[in-house]
């Protein structure tokens, strides 16, 4: 009890402080859901990295093996036979060759889901990285330049914030054509507003803190102050914000793909889902499986982000049951 109190009243300085890292890690560890989320994310990263070596080519089409259900399930397929002018009903059972089944073109679901995992993680991490960098830049500039610049930058942030994000995405993809790079860029270029506001307000409040004043008195330049003191001090906030904004990015990409505005050259979860939606009556698993992956991925990031926020928040009372 007393230990935590004294630690909380310390200013938060992350850089070069292993003890503090351990302290936050211990606080995060108390949250089992956050750890489960972290575990799932690591598993997904591993899957995306080494999975492709062990599975079939996700784009390999094989009509002979189309609509194979996942292992343990079976479906009936009616085939119209011209000669006899009658339907024959085929019973198709799941096989080990395609543990998660195949879609209407006979592509292996497992391979496609692994490819989708890679895309979702790439989009989520890259777009968030871009957004955080822009946000940090605008936030710091706004706080340090102040006055007229601050006003203009913040009004611009307001404009970006007011745009209904999804409509904007649709508009831009519509105008410039669908490509994964563009999707990442657009999400990154529009999603920085929260980070900018947060970092600006943090920078403003930091300017008056003693250790910044002390650093300045010692002759540190503004750039040095920003890099050595401000960034490490807002690091915890940025980590939380990034973790919690990744799921939104992943969902946005999937949603775009789902309505047919995704990159057609990529096998992302949204694109699989879009196919699956059209064949609900013949192959339900094609729609179910990518959604489950999407759901657990988003859930994992939300759990982790929430756990980190509690761990970093000195006011949150982890003691109470």
């Amino acid at each position: 009890m007393n230990n935590s109190r004294s630690a909380e009243s310390r200013p938060v300085r992350i850089h070069g402080n292993r003890r503090l890292f351990l302290y936050y890690w211990n606080r995060t560890k108390q949250n089992k859901l956050a750890i489960a989320g972290l575990g799932f994310i690591l598993f997904l990263i591993l899957l995306a990295l080494i999975g492709p070596f062990f599975t079939a080519d996700p784009t390999h089409v094989d009509f002979a093996e189309r609509n194979v259900p996942p292992l343990g399930f079976s479906t009936e397929e009616s085939i119209y036979d011209i000669k006899t002018n009658a339907f024959t009903v085929n019973l198709i059972e799941g096989t080990w060759k395609h543990p998660l089944g195949t879609d209407g073109k006979g592509r292996d679901m497992l391979a496609m889901l692994i490819s989708g995992a890679r895309i979702s993680l790439e989009v989520g991490l890259l777009a968030t990285l871009i957004a955080i960098c822009i946000g940090a830049l605008i936030g710091v500039l706004s706080a340090y330049l102040g006055g007229w610049w601050d006003n203009v930058l913040m009004r611009f942030t307001d404009i970006m914030m007011t745009f209904p994000f999804f409509l904007l995405l649709v508009l831009i993809i519509f105008m410039f054509g669908p490509s994964l790079t563009l999707i990442v860029l657009v999400i990154g270029l529009t999603g920085w507003t929260g980070a900018a506001r947060l970092i600006r307000s943090e920078a403003l409040s930091l300017r008056t803190r003693e250790f910044i004043t002390a650093a300045r008195a010692l002759g540190a330049s503004d750039a040095r102050i920003v890099i050595r003191h401000l960034i490490p001090n807002v690091a915890s906030l940025i980590i939380v914000m990034a973790t919690l904004s990744i799921p939104g990015v992943i969902l946005a990409e999937s949603a775009l793909s789902f309505i047919g505005l995704g990159d057609p050259s990529q096998t992302s979860w949204g694109i699989i889902l879009n196919d699956g939606q059209k064949s609900l009556d013949t192959a339900w698993w094609v729609a179910v499986e990518p959604g489950i992956m999407l759901f657990f991925t988003v859930l994992a990031f939300n759990f982790l982000g929430d756990g980190l926020r509690d761990a970093f928040d000195p006011r949150s009372n982890l003691d109470a049951r």
Binding site: M1, L318, R321
Partner: peptide
């Protein structure tokens, strides 16, 4: 007060 670290008397 019953907290995770024990009872605060």
């Amino acid at each position: 007060f019953f907290t995770r670290r024990g009872a605060v008397k």
